[in-house]
Design a protein around this nucleic acid. Structure first.
Length: 828
DNA sequence: CGAGCCCGGGG
DNA sequence: GTGTACGGGCTCG
């Protein structure tokens, strides 16, 4: 029989020595289903220049005992693949189970054969090789089989193929959020219980809202009261199973809610066996101390991960907090509550908990709304990359690009190069290239600024000039034009090479989508799906250049990256020169953008200039009008570091300016983002000063700074605006460097206050001599006016506003020197 | 300057 | 999970 279904979670299982790929999803009729399909893992070995007979005899009797099962080659065949632009023969070697692949490859490499695609995850390989797109419809041919373990019927497929279908199912989404006991922001998985769990969803057109808690008091109708924390966890499990979601979502659920739930469940010996096969929530370490949480048979989407890694890059937020992100994306914000009170009320005034239940529910609501809004985007990335949505939203750009390339490589019969070894990575990290061209602005305040930029500059250059590793310095094109400014570099112009070819498809596909968006808008149709598609294509295309220069890339090609920026510098320099010839004053240019002053010219003349540029550009390259700003401030770029690697060169071209938009809003670029080791005072000052100056209230801005500094020096600033925070991350004895926060933590411990790993230490710098650490004090010990005003002036306030005032011709001296009537001496 | 360390999100 | 790893900024020495 045939089964049509939409899968969203995947794994492999070994049953009686056979490796099966498992799909988990929902049938077109809405029934949850597991589909299994036999598929053998494999990798490739370079067959050139070896004694084939000897090799084949050796491989036939190869058995390695180091794995969980003896690793054996389950057969091999000879195939042809394209490697570095040439067709070549390889052995395709099958393994008896997935983890045998790296073991066998390592052994065979020791025989002197280069092995490839030996670290491609089995699940990923399966999806690519079968052209399966997660979330989209799949047709399986086979039959249902008996299985006592799964929470869904199991279908054994003989054959599996992707289906073209335009209708996408209504995914059933459940958002979840927990509140925990915590005094003074101290999060402690071991000692502090979960107080509340909220759920928000939409099932069969009905809103689902629920909060579980274990304090017996009068609470709103959506709150369900259970006897204790253990019961809370058990009830949560029941609710999720009954709701039967496809997608479970939340905010920082990878790093907080699920690990917390898992840890509390362990404490109460409650089985959170939510998996389709009754497995428990799986929390694993991923990367630099981060975790990710998985429930088998469900799709867990941590909205923070997608927003932080992929979607948030174009989002104008200063932190990725749920509050900031919800404001920016949904126009909603979090409920305002004092979370310190939750634990207090829990202990002393439970009748006041209703407010916190509402808060808890609202956070689930926000996560649900974020998921709902971004699901089209997450699904688009899934489609383009062809990997599970779970993985895709947790990837960084380099991995996303590489996954896209690997998918296309399978289609093009291109062999994937191996990841670099550690020694190779270190070598690559030493290498650097020149970045974008920066036309340094004359710092100042300007009126009527016109901004042009090249649309997708780097991607369009890579395509227009066929920049690729295989075509680098080819034998056939030596006499054709070379890369401008890189006379020893040229690229083959015979036939589109692999990377430019697949990149061009992204660009052309996006152009089509943009056309469709235009038409849909004319007809007043909803464009959100098309917008998502266009956005995904753009992000991916823009990441190709960075990928080629990324040290860990399989398709690393620093010469390609260097040539891309060389062409770009040439194009932007040409644009600047032409603008000047036509009598425009260019005030600033950076990589792909050019800022002109309108002065006595008209907008029409500026547009005419742009058209002139566009007549001479190759391929998909195009200069676009970005905007007209009534006023802007540019500050000096002093203190820049020289180019170092691709990233470093981007940093070298760092911009620092603020523009006033026609609607009165300001666009701030490149000024310090404020982190928790900046005082609240510094943050406040920077924003206010920029705003005042762009509104031409310079005198007022100076007045404000002087007044603030005056107050600071008089000791009138509230100490809480001066608090610096730093976290203790290990046992104090194991710190080798004795930083201020370590000293403070030591003092706290002496007083019997906890200051172990995880504690956020707060301190204020006070007057005195010596190193900063000698003058760091616990805020409670700081008497009014004892703080070191000069430290705050020089380390906090000057850094955030000095460049702004320097531009206007004010020296630091004038602004920050002590005024005569408020000398320090007064307070000593 | 390099080495070492901390930040993010979450209660 | 056929896992191994971010990027920026500050302080100390």
């Amino acid at each position: 029989m045939e089964l049509h279904f939409n899968p969203y979670d995947f794994e492999y299982r070994i049953e009686d020595g056979i490796t099966y790929f498992y799909f988990y999803g929902r049938t077109m009729e809405g029934q949850k289903v597991a589909v299994k399909h036999r598929y053998a893992p494999f990798f490739y070995a370079d067959a050139s220049g070896i004694d084939k007979q000897e090799f084949e005899e050796k491989i036939n009797c190869l058995v390695l005992k180091s794995g969980p099962e003896p690793a054996k080659a389950a057969g091999f065949e000879m195939i042809e693949k394209e490697s570095q632009g040439r067709k070549q023969e390889f052995y395709k070697i099958y393994a008896n189970y997935p983890k045998a692949v790296p073991l066998l490859a390592k052994e065979i490499q020791s025989w002197g054969l280069a092995c490839y695609e030996r670290d491609i995850l089995y699940v990923h390989r399966y999806l690519r090789d079968h052209g399966i797109i997660p979330m989209k419809t799949v047709k399986a041919s086979g039959a249902f089989v008996q299985d006592q373990w799964m929470r869904a019927p199991v279908f054994l497929a003989e054959k599996v193929e992707p289906q073209k279908s335009e209708t996408s199912p209504e995914w059933r989404v459940l958002a979840i959020d927990i509140e925990t006991y915590a005094v003074k922001k101290e999060i402690d998985f071991n000692h502090n219980p979960i107080l509340m769990i909220s759920f928000f969803g939409m099932k069969d057109g009905q809103e689902f809202r629920k909060v579980l808690t274990w304090k017996n008091t009068a609470l709103p109708e959506y709150v369900e009261i259970v006897p204790d924390e253990g019961a809370l966890l058990k009830r949560m499990k029941e609710i999720i199973i009954e709701y039967d979601p496809d997608i479970i979502t939340g905010y920082f659920t990878d790093g907080f809610d699920f690990p917390y739930l898992q840890s509390r469940a362990g404490k109460h010996k409650v089985q959170l066996d939510l998996g389709i096969d009754h497995s428990e929530i799986i929390v694993h370490q991923s990367g630099f101390g981060e975790t990710e949480a998985k429930i088998k048979g469900l799709l867990h989407l941590d909205m923070l991960k997608f927003i932080r890694n992929i979607f948030g890059k174009d989002l104008d937020v200063e932190t990725y907090s749920l509050d900031a992100v919800s404001r920016a994306l949904l126009g909603h914000q979090k409920h305002e509550v004092d979370l310190d009170q939750l634990s207090y009320f829990w202990d002393h005034e439970p009748e006041k908990l209703a407010e916190f239940c509402a808060y808890n529910l609202h956070d689930s609501f926000l996560a649900y709304k974020l998921c709902e809004k971004l699901l089209p985007d997450m699904i688009e990335f899934t489609s383009i990359v062809g990997l599970p949505t779970f993985d895709v939203i947790r990837m960084r750009f380099s991995k996303l690009v590489e996954s896209y390339i690997l998918k296309r490589a399978a289609e093009f019969n291109v062999l994937a190069p191996n990841k670099p070894e550690n020694t190779e990575i270190s070598r690559r990290m030493e290498e650097s290239i020149q970045g974008g061209f920066v036309y340094e602005p004359t710092p100042g305040l300007y009126d009527d600024i016109i901004v042009f930029d090249f649309r997708s500059l780097y991607p369009t250059i890579i395509c227009a000039h066929n920049i690729s590793p295989e075509g680098f310095r080819c034998a056939c094109c030596k006499d054709l034009p070379h890369v401008p400014g890189k006379e020893e570099y040229w690229f083959c112009s015979h036939g589109k090479k692999f990377l430019p070819a697949i990149l061009e498809q992204l660009i052309l596909r996006r152009a089509e989508i943009k056309q469709q968006i235009k038409e849909a808008k004319k007809k007043k149709e909803d464009t959100s799906l098309l917008d998502a598609r266009s956005y995904a294509l753009k992000i991916l295309a823009n990441s190709f250049y960075g990928y080629m220069g990324f040290y860990a890339a399989r398709w690393y090609c620093l010469e390609c990256a260097a040539s891309t920026t060389a062409y770009a510098r040439n194009y932007i320099a040409g644009t600047i020169a032409k603008a000047q010839q036509e009598g425009f004053k260019v005030i600033y240019a950076d990589t792909d953008s050019c800022f002109l002053l309108l002065e006595e010219k008209t907008i029409e003349e500026a547009m005419k200039f742009m058209e002139g540029i566009n007549e001479n550009l190759p391929g998909q390259m195009e200069l676009e009008f970005e905007g007209h700003y009534p006023r802007g401030i540019f500050v000096s770029l002093k203190g820049l570091k020289g180019p170092k690697g691709v990233k470093g060169s981007e940093k070298g071209a760092k911009k620092k300016y603020a523009l006033l938009k026609k609607d009165g809003n300001i666009k701030i670029i490149g000024f310090e983002t404020v982190r928790r080791n900046w005082s609240p005072l510094a943050k406040e000052m920077q924003e206010k000063v920029l705003r005042l100056i762009l509104q031409e209230k310079v005198a007022e801005a100076i007045q404000y700074v002087k007044k603030t500094i005056d107050e600071l020096r008089k000791g009138e600033i509230a100490a809480d605006k001066l608090v610096l925070k730093m976290q203790i991350t290990r046992e104090l004895s194991s710190y080798s460097s004795f930083a201020p926060h370590v000293k403070i933590a030591g003092e706290m411990q002496q007083r019997g206050q906890p200051a172990g790993p995880g504690t956020v230490v707060k301190f204020i710098i006070v007057k005195g001599k010596g190193l900063i650490r000698d003058r760091a004090k616990i805020p409670a010990d700081v008497s009014p006016g004892q703080y070191d005003a000069e430290y705050y002036v020089t380390h906090q306030l000057i850094p955030v506003v000095s460049s702004i005032f320097t531009v206007l011709g004010y020296s630091e001296e004038e602004l920050f020197k002590e005024s005569s009537q408020t000398g320090l001496g007064k307070y000593f």
